[in-house]
Write a protein that binds this DNA or RNA. Structure first.
Lengths: 344, 344
DNA sequence: CTGAAAGCGCTTACAG
DNA sequence: CTGAAAGCGCTTACAG
């Protein structure tokens, strides 16, 4: 268990710790023969500098925190777990590791302290946040103390500190959905909104309305329900819609795929067939959309690119790169499957 | 960004760094009044001791490495990602964080070095390995250098070092599956085996055969195919079975649920209906089994308990607890759904 | 080209 | 009850 330290490596190689350090860090002022001699000892003994020593001497951790604020059951949701894998692999491509914190929310004092502690203890060079509201006091606090933070779904046009990095959904997916349904002949469209504290959900809401207005479609109060980005929330919202409306819409567009699966469940339970009686659309590109009956028509994002963008720019910010864009807006792609009936 | 250090806290509180450290670490020989004075400064300034300092002074990292050896696409597989969440949450319950390394294999020199480096750099107190063969040289090397390793699906009756921790599937799931199919009236049973380098797959193979023998069922060469623990492997194996057998079995039991979904795909493509013409069973309890058509009958494990056991005992080993069991074998539960036809 | 030394932030025997 | 000091492992100006 006892590992070699740099002094022992130095002795074995017949040099000083300074020289070992120079070799390890690839300094140019070490003659080839010395470098080789030291490297041989290093290789033979499997020596790696102890990170704590390096950190105290001013190096970076090469680690990103991943703060995963979970609504409901992320354990079994393949979409949210693909987020994690995408983040981890993007970080690995930049030689970085991921330290994960799963938190139920960012409001409990205990969770807030825990997040701050992970930063303050010097475990990480920066953190990625997923599942947060557009306004989160902890995040603002971290940013103002100079920590580098990369946030999924966060935008403030007037806040452009170099350590505030984000990646966002395009603003106009909502009207893209309405355009598509309109083109399929739908005129009576119901909307299941998301959590309005999320930047993307609020924008999608606006964009749904804009789409409806552009096609001069009637926005009925009972055809518009608030949910959240989970299946149970979509289920409850759809049940509320069914309970309150005198006439069914011909299509329901959900803020996200998980909510759309909730809509499926509510409609199925009510004996309403999809898409014959009511069409359903999602937004996300959840893997489950392919497996569901009927397969879900959705507007899909490329989450691989999404997280690659976020992680790359977060690391660039940590490294103090200039000309590093604060944010990037990603576009969706229609994935046409079987949950929308063409009425024309 | 500049954080307070213990000396600054000490000055503000009018004590020495020693006393600050005693307060932080909860030593009893600090009078209540002094403790309060120091704690106030700590709270007011959001002071957390820098981890590197603590580590060099002999403390533990409170971090577990999670080495995830991936076959194929873990990003979109809800089962393997539930592993990760279960491990992370179990660790959190013990106040530990998870540092993740996703590796394509444990054979490439580069991957091996990376894994060893994470241990040797002192980033973690121990590591959890998932997706490994029963014999992995790197793991043996880590164990013999004294590192604490927790392994999912690993057993050697004669290797019981206190730093070799594992959690295992019961040995006899295979014959439980055969018993069930027999009871449903199946006499012609095909088997899709797993990767024989995995402890569980090899055991399941033995156990399938034992079950067949106990019921005096014929084990036909062409009804027995090797796959791996992925859907594509199950698909290919089922196609080989279909191509080579003159008569179809009435049931196919797969080594695991993912492979069973591959079997579904192969049968569906061949126009064979499940379960009318051929029944299919899995092992695992994959969330997708509920969503598939037909829903998959399987023998499910409780992965929450699985990982809680592994993580708890790994942490106990790190803390040097005695009487810490090296391994635990978990049992499966039949989940009867619609992929098996009753012939009697 | 290279070594001695200072310094990073902490903890803990040691001495009082 | 409490402080001064040593030590953990590293890097990097500094001096030669």
């Amino acid at each position: 268990m006892k590992q070699l330290n740099s002094l022992e490596v130095a002795k074995l190689a017949g040099v000083s710790r300074s020289t070992v350090s120079r070799v390890v860090n690839g300094y140019s002022n070490v003659p080839e023969s010395t470098r080789e001699r030291v490297m041989k000892i290093i290789r033979d003994n499997g020596y790696y500098p102890h990170l704590s020593g390096q950190l105290l001497a001013g190096k970076k951790t090469g680690t990103l925190g991943f703060f995963w604020i979970s609504l409901g059951d992320i354990a079994s949701d393949s979409l949210s777990s693909s987020y994690f894998v995408n983040v981890t692999e993007a970080a690995a491509q930049h030689g970085h590791l991921i330290l994960t914190c799963i938190l139920k929310n960012l409001t409990d004092c205990e969770n807030i302290c825990w997040a701050k502690k992970v930063f303050t203890q010097g475990r990480i060079d920066g953190g990625i946040f997923i599942g947060v509201n557009n306004n989160e006091p902890v995040i603002e606090e971290l940013i103002s103390s100079g920590h580098v933070v990369g946030i999924f779904d966060h935008f403030h046009a007037d806040r452009l500190e170099p350590n505030r990095i984000s990646v966002n959904f395009e603003d106009d997916t909502g009207s893209k959905v309405i355009d598509y349904l309109y083109e399929c002949g739908h005129r009576k469209i119901g909307i299941i909104d998301g959590n309005m504290n999320r930047y993307s959900s609020a924008k999608r809401h606006e964009s749904f309305l804009k789409g409806m207005q552009q096609h001069s479609l009637e926005i009925r109060r009972e055809w518009m329900q608030y949910a959240d980005v989970t299946e149970p929330a979509g289920y409850e919202a759809a049940k509320r819609m069914l309970a309150s409306c005198s006439e069914l819409p011909t299509a329901i567009c959900a803020n996200n795929d998980a909510a759309a699966f909730g809509v499926y469940k509510a409609l199925t339970e009510a004996g309403i067939s999809i898409p014959d009686q009511v069409s359903v659309t999602g937004i996300d590109g959840h893997g489950r959309g392919e497996l569901s009956t009927p397969q879900l028509t959705t507007f899909a994002f490329n989450y691989h690119d999404f997280f690659y963008s976020l992680v790359s720019r977060t690391i660039a910010a940590i490294e103090g790169k200039s000309n590093n864009p604060n944010t990037e807006f990603m576009t969706s792609q229609l994935v046409e499957r079987n949950s929308v009936k063409r009425l024309v």
